[in-house]
Nucleic acid binder design. Structure first.
Lengths: 298, 298
DNA sequence: GGTGAGCCATAGGCGAACCCTATGACCTCC
DNA sequence: GGAGGTCATAGGGTTCGCCTATGGCTCACC
């Protein structure tokens, strides 16, 4: 068992074989020779320990196992393409035509998908992505350092255009072992306000939304732990003893996987994610495309 | 630009660096030497064209771009792990202790996640996964060729235990260019019954559910195209001129990506995914664990 | 029934990529 | 000032993957 993880290029090849019905054609599509493709598929089958193809002199068809694996491969590749597109946008090397600044939540969870879609709509686009918190996004727009921004939480300032592009909500999550995981009645706001939580650091959009919502109930209690990013927060929540409050987008995977449980809550913690841009300036075409793609998920 | 796609092991290393704060420790966790890790990260940065780490004699921290890329990497890896677990289950080499047979929808969209979770709950489990349509699943259970099955659609036969583990619904989807994409009023059942559609083949769970629901309205019209798997159906729908009916689970990614649009419909097309197993026989522990994991997503 | 086109696998040779060990430079803390 | 931690570079060896060339096989079409 030399390598545990498969090769993304091999998965791409598998999908190509599934769609073309032939190793040779798939090889051509991938820009490699037919024997290489043959070998690659063999090693993939060997590594996974599963027979994926039925080879015949008239072509290659997927086995039933191959059919399923191909679908899983598509899911892996979709994420990988999103990563590659995202990285390309982060690469500031050649200053892109369209300069976008996004808050962390948007950049992490939505932007990669938008970029993949944008590439399909408008393949020639060059986009430069910057990640900043909501306050900084607005500053950059005012300073003319960005053409388009994405923020979360509160409304946009008067001097900027804004348009809702997606919704998010904050959820209270606990590890499946936690007592609240078996809670049936929705959490009352006071309970949330008086319980020490795992939270993002003060100043983050998530934290601000929660504090605003809990102000009528005495504000948030002293946190058990403050973390500067979503990932460690999520990790702390999975293994931790305290509840965490974080974006539904960030928690979705862990909830689906059963590592976190959402605790129903009476407190409405919805928030709108908005595109913002300077008044008076005309949005370039690429920005309009991106806006349309982003609003597609609304 | 030699390779377009990054190396999964490099992504895994990146996550390890993010969590340990040091290239050396990350290398140890991955079972490679520190210089190899250093080189791997350098090539990853070069390939993506993004600076991910700030190296210092006291450790390595992520840049802001690195933070985001790491999160994207986690998403890629999650899918990859699911694929690997799934492949391990499909590998029939040593007959597993727990023999599971699942319908295509369950196998494609839910099983990999369950397996990853199951591995965490019960690392020693050996599971053998078979994919079959709902009818065959039941046959295999009766013949004693499987310990546990998962089916979709109609209720289970009397001679089998059954338990709902998840919900799914069929959705009507069209490409964004299709006229129905701008439809505001929900589709009336008669419209659906009289429109030629893209459908799965007769006998599949999806098709049966739809036919049952449309029987009061005259049954389904002659399909434009019948396809034997979900992937080509999805593909046909994205580029096609006709609406398709498929599982919400299968369409979710494409809808999120904006390649497909869900058409609201009056017809309730919900269906329950059920675990089924023979009456009278006792379920092994591993099966109970899997059941609990599966019900977690309910 | 034969012929050609398309498919796949094997063989051989080459090149690049990767990994490991060893070493050195640097910072931090004691 | 030394010890323990960090990371980078250099050198050597091996493995892996690719490509070209070739052969066997099936199918379709004449």
């Amino acid at each position: 068992m030399a390598h545990r993880l498969p090769d993304l290029e091999a998965l791409e090849l598998l999908v190509a074989v599934a769609e073309t019905g032939s190793l040779g054609q798939a090889a051509a599509r991938q820009g490699i020779s037919q024997p290489s493709a043959s070998a690659r598929m063999s090693t993939l089958e060997r590594r996974l320990g599963v027979r994926l193809l039925v080879r015949s002199p008239s072509g290659s068809r997927l086995t039933s196992a191959g059919l399923v694996v191909t679908d899983w491969a598509r899911a892996v590749l979709q994420q990988a393409y999103a990563l590659v597109e995202g990285a390309a946008a982060l690469r500031a090397r050649q200053h892109g035509r369209l300069r976008v600044t996004a808050s962390l939540t948007v950049a992490e969870h939505l932007m990669p998908g938008w970029l993949v879609r944008l590439r399909e709509v408008d393949p020639g686009v060059h986009l430069e992505l910057n990640v900043a918190n909501s306050t900084l996004v607005i500053e950059r727009l005012r300073a003319g350092e960005a053409d388009l921004g994405f923020i979360e939480g509160r409304g946009a300032p008067r001097d900027l255009h804004s348009r809702a592009v997606a919704r998010d909500r904050l959820v209270v999550v606990v590890s499946p072992d936690h007592a609240w995981a078996r809670k049936r009645r929705p959490l009352r706001p006071v309970e949330l306000a008086t319980t020490p939580l795992l939270l993002r650091e003060a100043g983050s959009g998530t934290r601000e939304t929660l504090e605003a919502a809990l102000t009528p109930y005495g504000g948030v209690a002293e946190p058990v732990l403050e973390l500067g990013a979503t990932a460690p927060l999520r990790l702390a929540a999975t293994s931790g003893t305290a509840p965490a409050v974080l974006s539904a987008l960030a928690a979705a995977d862990e909830i689906a996987a059963g590592r976190l449980v959402e605790v129903p809550s009476e407190l409405p913690l919805d928030r709108v994610l908005r595109a913002v841009w300077p008044r008076g300036r005309e949005l370039p075409d690429a920005a309009l495309h991106l806006l349309r793609v982003a609003r597609g998920s609304l």
